[in-house]
Design a protein around this nucleic acid. Structure first.
Lengths: 314, 314
DNA sequence: AAACTGTTTTTTATGGAATAAAATCCAACG
DNA sequence: CGTTGGATTTTATTCCATAAAAAACAGTTT
């Protein structure tokens, strides 16, 4: 059966929305709410019914009002029930590979993962098919999947492409006309970097998101769907990687922020040679960090997961 | 239920194998047959049983013999029953978009495609999830898929990446040591090009495959999973594109072969500047061909398929 | 008429079951 | 002892059913 995470997320968001309205205020129209909550009217109506049942809104049809009295008592749905299955599976999979230190070459068993993650095999299959493009798994028809692993060669291949793409985008960015709004956005990001650097001891874990937004801005100078798609790979890898390798996290973030700032200044000069220098320097550091971490993963023992040997049929 | 295309394909291949053996010859062991037919022993045994039923082999266990008498009478399974569902869906989808001239922005309806292609919706979903990375479709959660189309911008973005990758690989190829076996392979491919050019009037449709093998050899000089994956996109697009746009096909193939030959000679010089020149020239021609064809597709009317408007929920 | 809500239809997401194919285990043969 | 074939177990593929969500349709109200 389809999960109702969409409804539950929308319900929770609606609670937040209502909290900002005064007692007795009229509710926005169903269409407006739909746009706000990013769901169809069907789901909006379901949310409204649920809110009415809990006494947070009163009235019917066009005459629905906010009831402040009920607001405090209403429990939102627990966070876990609002995450879509696809996201849950992705997260579970990445954590499985990282926590259990799954070895390169390990066979992936659909049924076992389904059991482990608490979903039907269909969900696993769908995830694996989508995830294939990330280069970490490989399909052997009629014989399952193989986990190829966070190996040093994975990191090297990833960064070879990343460097090509990033240099190309940085050059495109430098060529943007002075009146492009992207220069302003770049300035804003510079400020965000400075703010984060000033408070890096407490907020270093915010860097992952800032990093992604920065590189996304650079890429947006000359959009290309294949580059965007590749950047999804980077984002995913770094997201989980940062989450998992806590060692020296603060220090690594601080270094990266400073490199970004140099890179940003370089962009403002619009001098290609200077830009390439800053860009390459930053990517080299990032590559070293990732490679060091893959090597470490390999050196450690462990590897609990499914471990059927992986070879062709026959 | 799982299809038995693997069995049927193996059965047909086994018939071909047996045709080459003399009457009364002993059959290879089950393991050997499995390796030959590229299936598991389970399937080999199923094939052997089927062959025995049809009187093409006699005996049991280790004492199975070829019976020439029966061979001629045995019908192989029809070709269609030997193609795996995934391949069938892919082909149907590509033909659908090309033949019906599906417009950019058209919503893709899982059920309708399932009916049209004669498979369950699961098969369509799986295909779409895998196919997403090709950049021709896009998913809108809970609201289906959109066909983004063979637009000129698709062709431009495709070729921007292709050029980056191909130049990089060509440079790597030029740097291979003289004793690398790839130089010999390159020489063999040069000969194949010459052969094909000599008989291009009859064999121009063989170019698609040669093209793919040639570029794959170049890429193999410095393997990178992301480049290999991107090359799958190219291969698919060109495969169907060549199959569908028959106009000037012979002429286009002849031009491309000549460009390849120039490119190959350039590689043998190992002079980077010359190589880049030849490579860029070839890619420029290919890009023009593809762009011309996308423009044409857009100019024509038609667009029969599912045509629900594509927008976000609400 | 435009924007809204009530109702119905269509479509997607997900679990489950049945079968093909692969993998494994085991006894017998050479 | 290594290889082969027979029997069994495990796993992947595929179809189907059902609930959630979106979309379309049809009146109402302002």
């Amino acid at each position: 059966m389809k999960t109702d995470t969409v409804f539950k997320r929308a319900f929770n968001d609606a609670l937040g929305l209502i909290a900002r309205l005064p007692d007795g205020a009229p509710l926005p129209s169903e269409n407006r709410l739909g746009a706000e909550l990013r769901v169809s009217r069907t789901t909006v109506r379901k949310v409204l019914t649920a809110l009415a049942e809990r006494g947070v809104v009163s009235g019917e049809g066009r005459r629905r009002l906010v009831r402040a009295a009920g607001r405090a008592a209403v429990e939102p749905f627990p966070e876990v029930e609002t995450v879509p299955m696809a996201a849950h599976v992705e997260r579970s999979f990445m954590e499985w590979t990282l926590r259990d230190d799954v070895r390169p070459g390990t066979a992936i068993n659909e049924r076992e993962l389904a059991r482990r993650f608490g979903v039907a095999t269909t969900g696993i299959r769908e995830f694996l098919n989508r995830f294939q493009r990330f280069g970490l798994i490989e399909k052997r028809p009629n014989a399952g999947w193989v986990f190829k692993g966070f190996t040093p060669s994975f990191a090297l291949e990833l960064f070879e492409i990343r460097e090509m793409f990033e240099l190309r985008s940085a050059r495109a960015f430098a060529g943007l006309p002075a009146e492009s709004p992207k220069w302003r956005q770049l300035g804003e990001l510079r400020q965000e970097h400075l703010d984060l650097l000033g408070d890096v001891d407490r907020r270093y874990h915010d860097f992952s998101d800032l990093d992604s937004r920065y590189h996304r801005l650079i890429n947006s100078a000359a959009p290309n769907r294949f580059i965007d798609s590749f950047f999804d790979v980077i984002t995913l890898i770094f997201h989980y990687h940062y989450q998992w390798r806590k060692h020296d996290e603060r220090e690594r973030a601080a270094v990266a922020i400073r490199e970004h700032l140099t890179y940003i200044e370089a962009l403002f000069t619009r001098n290609i040679a200077i830009i390439e220098l800053a860009c390459r320097a930053h990517l080299a550091t990032a590559r070293e960090t990732l490679i060091r971490s893959t090597a470490r993963e390999k050196a450690f023992g462990g590897g609990s997961g499914t471990a059927r040997a992986a070879g062709g049929p026959a």
